[in-house]
Amino acid sequence: MRVSYSAAQAAPEERKRFWDEVISRTYFPLELQFHDTPSFSGSVDAWSLGAVSLSRNVSDGMVYRRHERHLLHEREEHYLITIPERSEICFTQDGKDVRCRPGAFLVERSHLPYEFSYADPNALWVLKVPAATLRARIGHPERLATLSFDATRGIGALFVDMVRLAAPRLDEMDEAARGLTGRHMVELLAMSVEADDRVLASGASPVQSAHLHRVERFIRAHLARSDLTPQTIAEGCGISVRYLHQLFENQGATVSEWVRRQRLMMCDEALSDPNCRQSISDLAYQWGFSDQAQFSRHYKAFFGRTPSETRALARARLVAAASEP
Score class of each variant (00 low, 15 high):
A190D: 10
D174I: 03
V58S: 02
A293W: 10
D60H: 07
L106V: 02
V107I: 10
C100E: 10
G139F: 04
A284G: 13
D36H: 11
H211N: 12
D197V: 10
A224T: 07
W47F: 12
F28N: 04
Q9I: 01
P325L: 02
G252Y: 02
F302W: 05
W258Y: 14
K128E: 12
D273A: 01
D94F: 03
E172Y: 11
F91C: 01
C90I: 02
P206F: 06
P206S: 06
Y79F: 15
E249G: 06
S192E: 06
N250C: 03
Y118C: 07
A7S: 14
R75S: 14
E235M: 05
L228D: 06
W125Q: 07
L144K: 00
C237R: 09
I233P: 02
F289W: 13
E257S: 15
P84D: 01
N250G: 04
H111R: 15
S4M: 03
H140P: 00
L144V: 03
A321H: 11
E74I: 14
V58Y: 00
V199I: 14
M62H: 00
Y118V: 03
M185L: 15
T133K: 06
S226F: 02
P102M: 01
G50C: 09
V3W: 01
E85T: 15
S48G: 07
Q9P: 11
T26K: 04
N122P: 03
I155V: 15
H245D: 12
P274F: 10
